[in-house]
Amino acid sequence: MDNAIIKLDEGTTCTAWNYSGHRLAAGSTDGTLSIFCSTDPASSVFNCSSKFKVRESSIVKVVWAPPEYGDVVACICADGSLLLWEEVVEDSELLQWKLCKCFDRISSQVLDVQFGVSQTSLKLVAAYSDGQVKVFELLDPFDLKNWQLQAEFQNVIESVSKFGNVSCRSASIAWNPLKGEIQQSSFVLGFDSDTPHLNSSKVWEFDQDHQRWLPVAELALPADKADPVSTVAWAPNIGRPYELIAVATCKEIALWHVGSNPDSDGRLSVEKVAMLSTHDSEVWQMEWDMSGMTLATTGSDGVVHLWQCNLYGVWHEQAILEPTS
């Protein structure tokens, strides 16, 4: 049942699969990005198709853009910069990877970045080490050089004052994975920072009428609001009447149901439905399967955990995948 499919180069620090799971981008400490592809959709044989240097700095994270925009990856580098690379044929040259946009580090470094699709544009949310959140918008789907800053805000739900001198260790963003015309763009964001107000995960939704981003839900109980968030994951919704979001903090993994109808204040109802114990290990990554029924997590304990819910709504750990040589 387990099968080694790709050998990664020495110094590889991060990997990311594209939407269909047929291409893998692997970033390494020397700033090289390797792309592995399978030529036949039915095969599990992957070969390195391209290798190029994105920056003279270690790659920390790689994220693929949605396929509606081509083969595009965003690389976050250790020097705090964010680069977009695209595989494209230009002016009758051969197919190659080209740098299409570099968001240089100005005052703070990029901690996390995620793409979100709306019907007409591609959006990019970036969370920075100074606690700022920036939403960029791509206006022309064929021109990945031109991004417009659509909004810039801090991850706070009530306070109107801005927090200065913020220092963040990490941030995690997850878009609502549902793609539909009716659905508003929304994402959830949490920080691990020295400013308690910024930490707790908040759901942000784009208000089309006023063209602005609004916080519509906070996923933390009053006592836990200051807990640093290590990672968040928004489950695909294939027909549930509510959304399901996993939030990992230093204490636990919490699962939240988020209602779909806002109250008079514009807030969505939230309910914490499960607390999954991480046994004192830090959670680094969480991802839902395509049905949104199984949550996989991994972290400092070096194993992958699989969590599921039974018919009685009780969440429990079903299996662990433990590396052995």
């Binding site: 099968n3 790709i6 990664l8 990997t15 299996a319």
Partner: peptide
């Protein structure tokens, strides 16, 4: 000379 890592596919 050893690879920097490996990707393992697990059919659950």
């Amino acid at each position: 000379g050893e690879a920097g890592g490996t990707v393992v596919e697990v059919k659950l």
